[in-house]
């Protein structure tokens, strides 16, 4: 996905992972929707830090790191709006985790900020998607 490659270029020390699977909660029609989950990892001052579906509160709908998308017309090359929201949420959670653990690192903070800025610029993302 072109957008993810671009994000890896502007924030090389932040690992973004989008995992796409069937939405098994919707049995027997589980093939109608996909479940997408996001995780973000960084190594900050020698410590591995990360956020994922496992680290978040499953009842906190506003901050959850997963969503569902329709399976029909799915294109793995296209960066969807849902992915953008998941990565933005994950970046905010990682920043909060660093603040809580009192881990400050200029490079990682800068790269997370860059990620956030690019993801908030929807026109830029649209251009990347179309190219």
């Amino acid at each position: 996905m072109r957008v993810l490659r671009y994000l890896a270029k502007i924030a090389p020390q932040v690992a973004i992972s989008l995992h796409i699977d069937y939405d098994c909660r919707k049995m027997p029609d589980f093939t109608e929707r996909f479940q997408v989950s996001c995780s973000l990892n960084a190594i900050v001052n020698g410590r591995r830090m990360g956020v994922s579906i496992l680290t978040g509160d499953p009842h906190d709908e506003d901050n959850r790191l997963w969503c569902t998308i329709p399976a029909a017309g799915f294109d793995q090359r296209f960066f969807r709006e849902e992915y953008r929201e998941l990565i933005l949420r994950a970046a905010a959670q990682l920043r909060e985790q660093m603040r809580q653990r009192q881990c400050s690192n200029w490079l990682i903070e800068r790269q997370l900020q860059r990620l956030t800025n690019v993801l908030k610029d929807t026109q830029h993302l649209e251009r990347l998607n179309q190219e």
Binding site: K9, P12, Q13, A15, I16, N41, R48
Partner: peptide, 9 residues
């Protein structure tokens, strides 16, 4: 030992 380089772990 772990590192993240070019967005990959």
């Amino acid at each position: 030992v772990s590192v993240i380089a070019s967005g990959c772990l």
